[in-house]
Design a protein around this nucleic acid. Structure first.
Lengths: 156, 156
DNA sequence: CGTGAAAACTGTGAGTC
DNA sequence: GACTCACAGTTTTCACG
């Protein structure tokens, strides 16, 4: 069903996850091919879901989101309904960039970007804490973003 | 120096951070403009650093990175040299997708993607713990990625 | 910001190995 | 099955008004 991809596909993925603006022609040149097979391979990788989407990455500070907070959330009750509800409510918050359901004491892990510490205060006060069933809520602030990539390690 | 961007620029950023494959023509249609001004605005947003890069987002599982771990690192000593060294060494690890220097007890926060728990074990054993000056190292595992976007909340 | 035109790219069909 | 080649239709890029 999901046949494995070959080494050419892998190279295409490596190139595109680093620079999606490379044209099929440029990719073809790197791989010593012509544009057509590369074009078809990319279409296939998109259709099979290897490539999920193409996005522009923006500057955090210039777009007025200099503050990044990491937030650990524990729910009070843990039945299925509450977890799904949390899921739906958290997706609706545009300040939240990542949300993971965790193994261990903490239930959810959030990464949040806002314009100021005041804004974070308001975010917690007016939005996060309004979500039902939140027990413990612990926030940690980023002093400096050392490193951030959307690339995965591609091997085999 | 860095003049503010206007509401048209902001709309362009919103569109492109959601779908970088939209053509200037499509963007122009949405904004009731022609392609040229949109083209020039995008160039300017790139040059001024609002748009950092264009990337393809890949599927974590299909690319053999189903395991995500969050890892808190505390250094033993905290002089400048050690922090810079940690910075350099951590960038060299392709499994690490995000690294933040934190305020508080924990010094660094890492997000790591690997193909298996065994691979994570090896990653810690052979790579992370080889970095000088690491004191405490605590790992948390993601059960389920609820939500993950590269988009920022754009306002004003 | 719009017009318009040249250059480059995309996407597809026909044919090769 | 994957490739090369050829080509029409789009898009990009940019000078000019």
């Amino acid at each position: 069903m999901t046949e494995k991809i070959d080494s050419v596909d892998l190279k295409i993925l490596k190139i595109l996850q680093e620079d999606a603006k490379k044209t099929t022609k440029e990719v073809a040149n790197i791989l010593n091919l012509t544009a057509s097979p590369v074009y078809e391979r990319i279409r296939r990788l998109e259709k099979k879901g290897y490539i999920k989407k193409y996005v522009a990455l923006l500057d955090k500070k210039l777009t007025n989101n200099p503050i990044t907070a990491l937030c650990m959330v524990s729910l009070r009750y843990h039945n299925e309904g509450f977890i799904d509800t949390f899921d739906k409510q958290i997706r609706a918050l545009p300040e939240v960039q990542e949300c993971y359901h965790m193994a261990g004491k903490v239930d959810f892990f959030l990464k949040i970007n806002v314009q100021s510490l005041d804004a974070y205060h308001e975010f917690v006060r007016l939005k996060l804490s309004k979500i039902d069933n939140i027990g413990v809520l612990e926030s940690y602030f980023v002093l400096k973003e050392i490193f951030h990539t959307t690339e995965y390690h591609l091997e085999s």
